[in-house]
């Protein structure tokens, strides 16, 4: 089943074209990795899928992005609904300067849940989901900014899945973490794959090879190659892909 489909997607920052005719089909409950050199448009593509680029002045998008068959760039699209469904984890962990509890409860609260008991259950459930409950259950009122970077990133993931999205977009979620923490976040991604469609941007090719089912290789705003991860890494169809994954690029 395809969850997300982009069709002839072009994106301009002012006059600069950052995405050129991208056609991408993302399968449900799989991990899809986007790789490519710096500045090729990976983050831009990711942010086009939940319309975070709308926040930047002068962005123009043409083409379609279908999520569950509906074009999210259609006029009248409800951005709140879209972003509830398509959530995002950022490169730098960005817990709010609030308590651990209030961070997890943030999404449910903004979407109307007030009952403190229910919020408590949600906090426990989603902190457990990212293996933080045992460590943090006595520190729920501490500021989230006092946690370690890895814990902060886990907290951000928990905060996101507490909104019950379908799709989780991750923009280099491990780039601020050490190798061990990275490995543990990868394990968490495997675990989350059961319930969510995950898209991850990464600079780390081993990571893409380890965690993803599908891989897309981008270059200068174009999606050069897209296929099953094993095939892309062992038998790339395009010369540029081969050059990049064997480290001969540029």
């Amino acid at each position: 089943m395809s969850k997300i489909e982009t069709k002839n997607l072009d994106l301009f920052y002012g006059t600069f074209q950052a995405l050129i005719d991208v056609d991408l089909v993302i399968k449900e409950k799989m991990i899809t990795a986007l790789i490519g050199p710096s500045g090729c448009g990976k983050s831009t593509l990711l942010r086009a899928l939940n319309r975070m680029n709308d926040l930047i002045d002068g962005v123009k998008v043409t083409g379609k992005v279908l999520i569950d068959g509906k074009n999210i760039y259609e006029p009248g699209t409800d951005l709140v609904e879209l972003r509830k469904k398509v959530g995002m984890v950022f490169q730098r962990p960005n817990p709010f300067p609030l308590s651990v509890f209030d961070n997890i409860a943030y999404g449910p609260r903004t979407h109307g849940l007030k009952d403190r008991g229910k919020l408590g259950e949600i906090v426990e459930r989603f902190l457990s989901r990212v293996q933080l409950w045992d460590v943090l259950k006595d520190r729920l009122e501490d500021s989230a900014l006092d946690l370690s970077l890895e814990q902060q990133q886990r907290l951000c993931i928990a905060r996101l899945v507490a909104v019950m999205p379908d799709v989780v977009l991750m923009d280099e979620p491990c780039s601020a973490l050490d190798p061990l923490a990275t490995q543990r976040i990868e394990e968490l991604m495997f675990e989350l794959k059961k319930d969510y469609t995950i898209l991850i941007v990464t600079h780390n090719m081993q990571q893409a090879a380890r965690v993803s089912d599908w891989t897309g290789f981008m270059l200068l705003g174009k999606l050069v190659e897209y296929g099953e991860t094993k095939q892309v890494f062992t038998n790339p169809q395009e010369k540029q892909t081969e050059e990049y994954i064997t480290g001969r690029y540029g």
Partner: peptide
């Protein structure tokens, strides 16, 4: 800026983002 983006990415409205974060 990442606080604001983080909040909007969770489906909060601009106004909710202003007064909650």
């Amino acid at each position: 800026r990442i606080y604001k983006e983080g909040s909007l990415a969770l489906g909060a409205t601009h106004w909710q983002t202003i007064y909650r974060v």
